[in-house]
Computed example of a mutant assay.
Amino acid sequence: MQSILYCALNRHYVTPELSTVLQDMARDMAAAHPDTVTQVLDAGFPFWNGMPLLPHLSHNDGEKADIAFFYENENGYLRGQTRSPIGYFAFQNGPTSCPKRWPSLRWDMAWLQGVWPNWSLDDRRMATALRLLKNDPRVDKVFVEPHLAQRYGVTGGKVRFQGCRAARHDDHIHMQL
Protein backbone atom coordinates (compact mmCIF):
# COMPACT_ATOMS: atom_id res chain seq x y z
CA MET A 1 0.00 0.00 0.00
CA GLN A 2 1.18 3.51 -0.78
CA SER A 3 0.21 4.74 2.69
CA ILE A 4 -0.48 3.10 6.03
CA LEU A 5 -3.58 5.31 6.03
CA TYR A 6 -5.25 2.97 3.53
CA CYS A 7 -4.70 0.04 5.87
CA ALA A 8 -5.82 1.97 8.97
CA LEU A 9 -9.05 2.90 7.18
CA ASN A 10 -9.63 -0.69 5.98
CA ARG A 11 -9.36 0.30 2.32
CA HIS A 12 -6.86 -2.41 1.37
CA TYR A 13 -8.93 -5.60 1.09
CA VAL A 14 -8.82 -7.60 -2.15
CA THR A 15 -9.84 -11.07 -3.24
CA PRO A 16 -7.11 -13.73 -3.36
CA GLU A 17 -7.15 -13.56 -7.18
CA LEU A 18 -6.62 -9.79 -7.23
CA SER A 19 -3.87 -10.14 -4.64
CA THR A 20 -2.10 -12.57 -6.98
CA VAL A 21 -2.54 -10.24 -9.97
CA LEU A 22 -1.10 -7.31 -8.02
CA GLN A 23 1.84 -9.35 -6.73
CA ASP A 24 2.55 -10.66 -10.24
CA MET A 25 2.45 -7.13 -11.61
CA ALA A 26 4.85 -5.87 -8.93
CA ARG A 27 7.23 -8.77 -9.66
CA ASP A 28 7.07 -8.17 -13.42
CA MET A 29 7.62 -4.44 -12.97
CA ALA A 30 10.70 -5.09 -10.83
CA ALA A 31 11.99 -7.59 -13.41
CA ALA A 32 11.55 -5.10 -16.25
CA HIS A 33 12.83 -2.13 -14.24
CA PRO A 34 14.98 -3.23 -11.28
CA ASP A 35 14.31 -1.54 -7.95
CA THR A 36 10.78 -0.51 -8.99
CA VAL A 37 8.16 -0.28 -6.27
CA THR A 38 4.56 -0.78 -7.37
CA GLN A 39 2.13 0.83 -4.93
CA VAL A 40 -1.58 0.25 -4.43
CA LEU A 41 -3.83 3.10 -3.32
CA ASP A 42 -7.48 2.27 -2.62
CA ALA A 43 -8.72 -1.27 -3.04
CA GLY A 44 -11.76 -2.63 -1.19
CA PHE A 45 -13.69 -2.30 2.06
CA PRO A 46 -14.08 -5.56 4.00
CA PHE A 47 -17.41 -5.27 5.74
CA TRP A 48 -20.25 -5.18 3.20
CA ASN A 49 -19.94 -6.76 -0.22
CA GLY A 50 -21.59 -4.43 -2.72
CA MET A 51 -20.91 -1.25 -0.72
CA PRO A 52 -18.90 1.22 -2.80
CA LEU A 53 -15.72 2.63 -1.33
CA LEU A 54 -16.51 6.35 -1.37
CA PRO A 55 -15.75 8.53 -3.20
CA HIS A 56 -15.40 5.72 -5.75
CA LEU A 57 -18.43 4.56 -7.68
CA SER A 58 -17.09 1.03 -7.46
CA HIS A 59 -14.42 -0.72 -5.36
CA ASN A 60 -17.28 -2.66 -3.81
CA ASP A 61 -16.24 -6.30 -4.12
CA GLY A 62 -12.49 -6.70 -3.56
CA GLU A 63 -11.88 -7.06 -7.31
CA LYS A 64 -10.76 -3.50 -8.00
CA ALA A 65 -7.63 -1.57 -7.07
CA ASP A 66 -5.99 1.75 -7.85
CA ILE A 67 -2.29 1.74 -8.65
CA ALA A 68 -0.08 4.77 -8.06
CA PHE A 69 1.70 6.40 -10.97
CA PHE A 70 5.48 6.10 -11.31
CA TYR A 71 7.45 9.38 -11.15
CA GLU A 72 10.88 10.75 -11.91
CA ASN A 73 12.73 14.01 -11.55
CA GLU A 74 16.00 15.31 -13.00
CA ASN A 75 17.89 12.69 -10.98
CA GLY A 76 15.85 9.73 -12.28
CA TYR A 77 13.22 7.35 -10.96
CA LEU A 78 11.68 8.28 -7.60
CA ARG A 79 11.40 4.90 -5.91
CA GLY A 80 8.12 4.54 -3.99
CA GLN A 81 7.28 8.24 -4.27
CA THR A 82 4.01 9.90 -5.30
CA ARG A 83 3.46 13.57 -5.96
CA SER A 84 0.74 13.83 -3.30
CA PRO A 85 0.87 12.27 0.17
CA ILE A 86 -2.00 9.90 -0.67
CA GLY A 87 -1.21 9.26 -4.34
CA TYR A 88 -4.36 11.01 -5.60
CA PHE A 89 -5.18 14.53 -6.80
CA ALA A 90 -1.83 15.34 -8.50
CA PHE A 91 -3.28 15.42 -12.00
CA GLN A 92 -1.52 15.06 -15.37
CA ASN A 93 -3.55 17.54 -17.36
CA GLY A 94 -4.25 16.77 -20.97
CA PRO A 95 -7.00 17.16 -23.51
CA THR A 96 -10.47 16.01 -22.49
CA SER A 97 -13.83 15.95 -24.20
CA CYS A 98 -15.70 16.18 -20.88
CA PRO A 99 -17.80 19.29 -20.38
CA LYS A 100 -17.85 20.92 -16.98
CA ARG A 101 -21.14 19.92 -15.35
CA TRP A 102 -22.72 18.99 -12.08
CA PRO A 103 -22.94 16.43 -10.58
CA SER A 104 -19.50 15.11 -11.40
CA LEU A 105 -16.55 13.59 -9.62
CA ARG A 106 -14.14 15.07 -12.19
CA TRP A 107 -12.59 17.47 -9.72
CA ASP A 108 -9.69 19.47 -11.10
CA MET A 109 -8.50 20.92 -7.79
CA ALA A 110 -6.56 23.61 -9.66
CA TRP A 111 -5.90 25.38 -6.35
CA LEU A 112 -3.98 22.33 -5.09
CA GLN A 113 -1.81 21.53 -8.11
CA GLY A 114 0.92 24.05 -7.28
CA VAL A 115 1.52 22.40 -3.90
CA TRP A 116 2.81 19.13 -5.36
CA PRO A 117 6.42 18.63 -6.49
CA ASN A 118 7.02 19.27 -10.18
CA TRP A 119 7.86 15.66 -11.04
CA SER A 120 7.27 13.99 -14.38
CA LEU A 121 5.75 10.63 -15.08
CA ASP A 122 8.34 7.91 -15.55
CA ASP A 123 7.34 7.06 -19.11
CA ARG A 124 9.15 3.72 -19.26
CA ARG A 125 7.57 2.42 -16.06
CA MET A 126 4.13 3.82 -16.89
CA ALA A 127 4.16 2.17 -20.33
CA THR A 128 5.29 -1.14 -18.85
CA ALA A 129 2.63 -1.07 -16.11
CA LEU A 130 -0.18 -0.33 -18.57
CA ARG A 131 1.02 -3.01 -21.00
CA LEU A 132 1.24 -5.59 -18.21
CA LEU A 133 -2.32 -4.85 -17.15
CA LYS A 134 -3.64 -4.76 -20.71
CA ASN A 135 -2.02 -8.11 -21.53
CA ASP A 136 -3.01 -9.92 -18.33
CA PRO A 137 -5.98 -12.19 -19.16
CA ARG A 138 -7.18 -11.99 -15.54
CA VAL A 139 -7.68 -8.21 -15.81
CA ASP A 140 -11.02 -7.15 -17.26
CA LYS A 141 -10.78 -3.33 -17.30
CA VAL A 142 -8.13 -0.66 -16.91
CA PHE A 143 -9.20 2.96 -16.53
CA VAL A 144 -6.81 5.76 -17.41
CA GLU A 145 -7.48 9.09 -19.12
CA PRO A 146 -7.47 8.80 -22.94
CA HIS A 147 -4.54 11.20 -23.39
CA LEU A 148 -2.39 8.92 -21.18
CA ALA A 149 -3.54 5.72 -22.90
CA GLN A 150 -2.60 7.31 -26.22
CA ARG A 151 0.74 8.58 -24.86
CA TYR A 152 1.67 5.04 -23.76
CA GLY A 153 0.26 3.24 -26.79
CA VAL A 154 -2.33 1.16 -24.92
CA THR A 155 -5.60 2.40 -26.37
CA GLY A 156 -8.56 0.12 -26.92
CA GLY A 157 -9.59 -3.25 -25.64
CA LYS A 158 -9.69 -3.40 -21.87
CA VAL A 159 -8.02 0.03 -21.52
CA ARG A 160 -10.98 2.37 -21.31
CA PHE A 161 -12.19 5.83 -20.46
CA GLN A 162 -14.21 5.75 -17.25
CA GLY A 163 -16.66 8.42 -18.44
CA CYS A 164 -17.20 12.08 -17.73
CA ARG A 165 -19.05 11.73 -14.42
CA ALA A 166 -16.54 9.43 -12.71
CA ALA A 167 -13.33 10.55 -11.03
CA ARG A 168 -10.42 11.51 -13.22
CA HIS A 169 -7.85 8.83 -13.93
CA ASP A 170 -4.86 11.01 -14.71
CA ASP A 171 -3.46 10.66 -11.20
CA HIS A 172 -3.70 6.86 -10.86
CA ILE A 173 -4.47 3.66 -12.76
CA HIS A 174 -7.68 1.80 -11.93
CA MET A 175 -7.72 -1.91 -12.66
CA GLN A 176 -10.32 -4.58 -12.05
CA LEU A 177 -10.84 -8.27 -12.58
Rank of each mutant, 00 (worst) to 15 (best):
Q92S: 04
Y152Q: 02
K158I: 10
W119R: 03
A167N: 14
A65I: 05
L130Y: 01
S58P: 08
A129V: 05
L133G: 04
R168I: 09
V144N: 03
I67G: 01
G80E: 10
L9P: 00
M29C: 01
R106P: 04
D123K: 00
P16S: 03
V159T: 09
Q39K: 06
L53K: 13
P16V: 02
H33V: 06
L133K: 11
D61M: 08
H33S: 02
F45P: 04
I4N: 15
S58Q: 04
I86D: 12
A90P: 06
F45D: 11
M51V: 10
V142I: 08
V21I: 11
L57V: 14
L54G: 12
R168D: 14
L130I: 03
V139P: 07
S97C: 07
R160V: 09
R160T: 10
M51P: 08
W119N: 03
M29Y: 03
C164W: 06
T36F: 04
P46D: 06
Q113R: 10
T82F: 01
G114P: 03
P146S: 04
A8M: 08
L121V: 09
K158H: 06
V40Y: 03
I67W: 01
W48R: 15
G80C: 12
A31K: 11
E17G: 09
R168P: 07
R11P: 03
S104Y: 09
L112D: 12
P46C: 07
P99A: 13
A68D: 01
G153D: 02
K158F: 03
R160G: 01
N118S: 10
L177E: 04
A32L: 06
A8R: 09
S120E: 02
R168K: 14
Y13R: 12
Q81H: 02
W119M: 05
P34F: 05
G87M: 02
N10W: 13
F161Y: 05
P137M: 09
L5E: 13
L41A: 06
S84P: 00
Q92A: 07
T128E: 03
C7F: 11
R11T: 00
Q150F: 03
F161R: 03
D140R: 15
F91H: 12
Y71P: 07
I173H: 00
V14E: 08
F89G: 07
N10F: 13
T128W: 01
Y77T: 12
H12G: 10
S84F: 06
F70P: 11
R106Y: 08
D66A: 04
T128K: 08
D136I: 14
Q113Y: 05
R27T: 13
P52S: 11
G94L: 00
H33T: 06
D170I: 09
G94Q: 02
G114Q: 11
L57N: 13
P137W: 13
R131H: 08
K64Y: 14
V37M: 05
L5T: 14
A149G: 01
D42P: 00
E74V: 15
D66S: 07
G94P: 03
V37H: 09
P55K: 09
T96N: 04
F89Q: 07
H174F: 04
S3C: 07
K158W: 01
V142N: 00
G50I: 11
F69H: 10
P55L: 13
R124V: 12
